[in-house]
Design a protein around this nucleic acid. Structure first.
Length: 617
RNA sequence: GCCACCCUAGCUCAAUCGGCAGAGCAACCGCUUCGUAAGCGGUCGGUUGUCGGUUCAAGUCCGACGGGUGGCUCCA
């Protein structure tokens, strides 16, 4: 992948979507009134905070997808008790019923009003200087300074707000947390205290939101991977490095086997490359110039510097260059489950979602300009097909186009972008265009999936690269006998296996569909005299390709069922006198359904069918 | 990395103001042989993350380090 590869880095590592605010539609839709309520609640909160800390300085406090926040510079750190106090005071202010009053002010007034608020003064400067809007464009016309007052509180603010604090439902407001945040997000600037809160129209909506948050917590992969004995992290081994236990390993094997099989069918060749490479290679690829801060320190090998690989692309390129390539060999699609290591700052590590070592399901497609359109459509269909197999059915697609700073010819970009656009449209999928949002080396498509909790995650990325083929002087001999530059496309479908696994765990809440479940069925002998029969059945089921265990502990059947439920094993097969006699198993499913007694063959068929169809149960 | 908070048995958590480190679950050993989400009894389990400091006395107070959690422009 090209230097400074933000996108692949993104897919592999994109963080919790909660803040990205892509929850479910009910929360997501722009609701003007709700937005006003939240923004107004932020002002009310600021008032309450300033009453408590009159010397406090206020920064900014917008409404966000799930509520609002406000940043403060305060004389001491806030405690949970402070939050309770502030929240209680907010309710009082709300019921006191102040009108929100809009007023435009000139520069002098504004400076006077906020004379002891340095952050506001800085904002005034910026606005007057024609501060850039969110698109980086200067606003049209003369900048206007406006303020909003409610009761004793005044804030530099564009609005809009509700008419009166009473429009905020005091029973639907809650402060959630306090966190550090740099002034204007800049690490060079002061660290402020940010209070996050949420506000809704009704107490019931607040309840629903809080229940949703609880559900998110229950499904937290960091908890589930430990409880289900799938994976661990080790203080002694270093943060951000995952250890796959046998049960996690089984799931990963299923994922990888499926991935390999599909790739073979999809016309890919599977390759393997080393974990380290000489500085020279990373110099030529440009990584040392543009990506070094994400790479680990070099190791000295017989006087030569070697680096742990943060990406696989330079290695694939070396293989491409082992001989002269003919147009007849193209397209070449090379895929690798390549384990890469990237330095991530300690503060951003997060379970499996953001780690320091991970395996990318990477591939590089080398093709002619004439083939590009077909290749893009092919890879897009391929990706969606695989994502659907894992149980995701809702997608959002983003097309990112040429930024101002770029390499390659605009005509190439145009062709590449058109091929991406046509592919999306051919699939009849809705998409958004991020104009100028591509990497400097090429345009891309990203696919985001929506999980069971309505959160979205970026998984797939399909990116053109006009940079590396130049840097490595890639060529193929065309029909005309002359050398041409091939097109190169990077793509990762699942992103990182670690992160994808974390997403799967949360999507299914640990209750994997049968084809992925580490243990698909557990035999539960009722008494010791049934253990032998249980093992016989288990043997038959294993021979049929199922992952089966026998619970031969001295526990009672009830306890064994409970254990199986806790482990979220899809099928529990109770065997007692009746079953042993009739050569049957008595099926209880994870969801509590009890299909009852059936022959071992019938159960085998049922389970195999669930596996083939990738059903939950 | 930075800010705040957290770290007690494998897990979830107790331990008043600084005064003898505890419980449930798990594990192990027995007994029980049972029909759809926990049978009964016993045993084991700890340098309270690490190192240092204050104190007659530290799980508790202070500092450093390690690890984790929530955040670090959704833009007046």
């Amino acid at each position: 992948m090209a230097p400074a590869l933000p996108a692949q880095s993104d897919i592999a590592q994109t963080r919790s979507p909660l803040r990205r605010g892509e929850m479910s539609d009910q929360y997501r839709h722009e609701n003007d009134h709700l937005h006003r309520i939240r923004h107004s609640a932020a002002h009310v909160m600021a008032q309450a905070v300033l009453e408590k800390f009159p010397e406090g300085k206020v920064a900014i406090g917008p409404a966000i997808e799930t509520g609002f926040y406000y940043d403060f510079d305060l004389p001491r750190p806030l405690t949970p008790e402070d939050l309770e106090e502030i929240e209680a005071r907010m309710r009082e202010i709300i019921t006191e019923g102040y009108d929100f009053v809009y007023q435009e002010v000139d520069e002098e007034e504004a400076r006077h009003i906020f004379s002891d608020q340095p952050y506001k003064l800085e904002l005034i400067e910026d606005i007057l200087a024609g501060g850039l809007d969110e698109h980086g464009q200067p606003p049209e016309g003369k900048p206007t300074l406006s303020i909003y007052r409610h009761g004793p509180f005044v804030d530099l603010c564009r609005g809009p707000h509700v008419a009166n604090t009473r429009e905020i439902n005091p029973d639907a407001v809650k402060l959630l947390s306090v966190a550090g945040a740099y002034w204007r997000g800049d690490e060079q600037r002061p660290m402020l205290q940010r209070i996050y809160g949420t506000a809704w129209e009704t107490a019931q909506e607040l309840e629903q939101f809080l229940a949703w948050r609880e559900e998110v917590e229950k499904r937290d992969h960091r908890r589930l991977v430990r409880e289900l004995d799938l994976l661990s992290f080790h203080e002694e081994g270093g943060p951000g490095l995952a250890y796959w236990h046998p049960k996690g390993g089984r799931i990963r094997q299923v994922i990888e086997d499926f991935w390999r099989a599909r790739h073979r069918e999809g016309g890919y060749e599977i390759v393997f490359t080393p974990h380290i490479g000489k500085a020279e290679l990373w110099q030529q690829s440009g990584h040392l110039d543009f990506y070094r801060e994400s790479m680990y320190a070099p190791m000295d090998v017989e006087g030569m510097e070697y680096f742990l690989k943060p990406m696989n692309c330079p290695f694939h390129i070396l293989m491409y260059k082992t001989r002269l390539r003919s147009y007849r060999e193209l397209p070449m699609r090379w895929a690798e489950l390549g384990t890469v290591y990237r330095y991530e700052r300690s503060g951003v590590l997060h379970g499996l979602m953001r780690v320091r070592g991970f395996t990318q399901d990477d591939a590089h497609i080398f093709c002619t300009p004439q083939q590009i359109e077909g290749e893009v459509l092919r890879v897009l269909r391929f990706s969606l097909d695989i994502l659907r197999a894992f149980g995701f059915s809702e997608f959002q697609i983003y097309l990112s186009t040429m930024p101002k700073k770029h390499v390659g010819e605009p005509a190439q970009w145009e062709q590449a972008q058109e091929s991406l656009r046509k592919a999306i449209e051919a699939e009849g999928l809705p998409y958004e265009v991020d104009e100028g949002g591509g990497a400097f080396y090429g345009p891309k498509i990203d696919i985001h999936i929506k999980d069971a909790l309505g959160r979205t995650w970026q998984l797939t990325t399909i990116q053109f690269d006009f940079n590396l083929p130049e840097r490595f002087d890639l060529a193929y001999v065309g029909e005309d006998g002359k050398e041409h530059r091939p097109y190169m496309v990077h793509r990762a479908l699942l992103g990182s296996l670690e992160r994808f696994f974390g997403i799967l765990v949360e999507h299914y809440g640990g209750a994997f569909p049968v084809w992925l479940a580490p243990v698909q069925a557990v035999l539960i002998p009722i008494a010791d005299r049934h253990v032998e029969y249980a093992y016989d059945v288990a043997e038959r089921l294993r021979a049929a390709g199922l992952r089966v265990e026998v619970n031969d502990s001295g526990e009672r059947m009830q306890a064994k069922i409970r254990d199986a439920q806790m482990e979220k094993i899809p099928y529990m097969l109770v065997v007692g006198d009746r079953e042993a006699e009739a050569g049957q198993v008595n099926l209880r499913r994870r969801d509590g359904e009890k299909p009852g007694a059936m022959s071992v063959d019938d159960f085998t068929r049922l389970a195999q069918e669930a596996v083939e169809e990738r059903r939950l149960l």
